[in-house]
């Protein structure tokens, strides 16, 4: 069962950038790539908690702003643990997340 939540206009997220969605469980970073895809991940680097939303986005990765750990946006995989990801989609120029369905590292 998925429960898509409208979290805002695609245009509000800079290309090769991210914005934050605040939830009761913590902040989720919503990324937009050059190719026009969106990805949602916990905004916490597995290394020392750096805010991934402030990293440099390249291809389908983001580099953490604090110590440059690379995170794969699609899977959340890094060389130092995995970041939980959330289903995300674009519909009619708006971005939807399924925030209840975090794909925790343990599940993969």
């Amino acid at each position: 069962m998925s429960a898509w939540t409208d979290v805002g206009k695609l245009g509000d997220i800079p290309v090769r950038g991210a914005r934050i969605v605040r939830t009761a469980q913590g902040c989720i970073a919503v990324f937009r790539t050059l190719e026009g895809q969106v990805f949602a991940l916990d905004d916490r680097c597995p290394h020392k908690g750096g805010p991934l939303s402030e990293g440099i986005v390249h291809g389908q990765s983001v580099s953490c702003p604090l110590h440059n750990l690379a995170v794969d946006l699609a899977s959340g995989a890094t060389a130092d643990g995995t970041v939980p990801t959330y289903p995300a989609k674009i519909d009619g120029g708006r971005v939807f997340l399924d925030v209840g369905r975090s794909v925790a590292p343990a599940e993969r």
């Binding site: 939540t5 805002g8 934050i20 969605v21 939830t23 009761a24 469980q25 925030v99």
Partner: peptide
């Protein structure tokens, strides 16, 4: 933040 969902959840 783009959206604050703390209320809803």
């Amino acid at each position: 933040v783009m959206t604050d969902l703390t209320q809803e959840t």
